[in-house]
Amino acid sequence: MKPGGGDGPHVFVDDLECPELRDEDLHHLTRSLRLRPGDTFTASDGAGSWRICRMGSVPEGEVEPVGEVVFVEAAQPPLTIGFALIKGGRPELVVQKLTELGVDAIVPFTAEHSVVRWEADRATRHTERLRRVAREAAMQSRQVRLPEIGEPTDFATLATYPGAIRADITGNAPSLDHPTVLIGPEGGWSETERHQLGAIRINSSVLRSETAAITTAALLTALRDGVIKHC
């Protein structure tokens, strides 16, 4: 869901009653977007609430709340996309686009045929990076809820999520009856994974992992928003 207040700048703060800008957000608003004292922007707590604020003294980053706090109900059902770890900067691309589309939870995982695996401190570092990417994407797309970026897990754990299903070219049409969709690795699903979960088909072509994740998110959010109807 997007807040009101037009298409102006949007940031996240910890407390909407006494909003304080992070240093990087202050820099973005005043240096990149060139906001000046008296200019307005919207701020959200990342949990569904937002309000209009006014920029105060720029060097100190003072913020003055000028609008009432507005709460936006969460869209139902909550949507979760699990994606098997992939190489390079593609996980960042997946998280960025899924956040823009309004997915509620994004969870990287390791499948049996996964080539990429994050271990120990590397997993922590990558997860923090994905959370920063999600925050930036939520600001750009004016979301009022930050998606949950889960710690890397495995297929068996995600398979226990309510309504979990795999994306596979052999599956049926997507449905909100299955709000958790797992996207497989470059090497495809193992026979064990195929037997463990059913499948939905999101396209008649064999897609790259990141394309499959983004396409799945677009279809599910469009179904949830009533943009498209399930036949």
Score class of each variant (00 low, 15 high):
R125G: 06
V133H: 01
A111F: 06
V95K: 10
K97H: 14
A75M: 15
S114H: 04
G67V: 12
R131K: 14
V103C: 14
K97T: 07
T127P: 02
T124C: 01
T110M: 09
Q76F: 03
G102P: 07
E128F: 01
V66A: 11
E128W: 01
R125D: 06
G89V: 01
V70C: 13
A84D: 09
D104T: 10
V63I: 11
V95L: 11
R129S: 11
G82E: 10
G102H: 03
E112W: 04
F109G: 11
E64F: 07
E73S: 15
L101V: 13
G67D: 11
A105C: 15
A75V: 10
W118H: 05
V103D: 08
L101M: 14
R90L: 13
R122A: 02
L79K: 10
R135M: 00
A84P: 08
Q96Y: 10
P77T: 01
R135A: 00
F83S: 13
F71Y: 12
R90Q: 10
F71D: 04
P108Q: 13
H126L: 14
E64T: 12
R135P: 00
A111H: 07
W118M: 04
A75I: 11
D121H: 12
H113Q: 09
V103N: 11
V116E: 05
S114L: 02
A138Y: 07
P65C: 08
V133N: 00
I86P: 13
F109S: 08
L130P: 02
E119P: 03
A75T: 14
L130W: 10
D121W: 06
S114A: 09
E112L: 09
W118Y: 04
V72F: 05
G88I: 00
I86M: 12
A134E: 03
K97V: 09
V94S: 05
R117M: 04
E119R: 15
V103L: 11
E68V: 09
R125T: 08
E136C: 03
T124D: 06
V115E: 12
S114R: 04
P108W: 08
P78D: 03
R125I: 01
R129Y: 11
G82C: 11
E100S: 15
I86N: 05
V116C: 13
F83R: 11
M139Q: 15
G82T: 12
L85F: 09
H113L: 03
V133R: 00
Q76M: 14
V69P: 04
E119M: 02
P91R: 01
R132K: 10
F71G: 00
L85W: 07
H113T: 03
E100C: 15
R131F: 05
F109Q: 07
F71L: 04
E112R: 10
G82I: 09
T127D: 00
K87N: 07
L93C: 03
Q76D: 13
P65H: 08
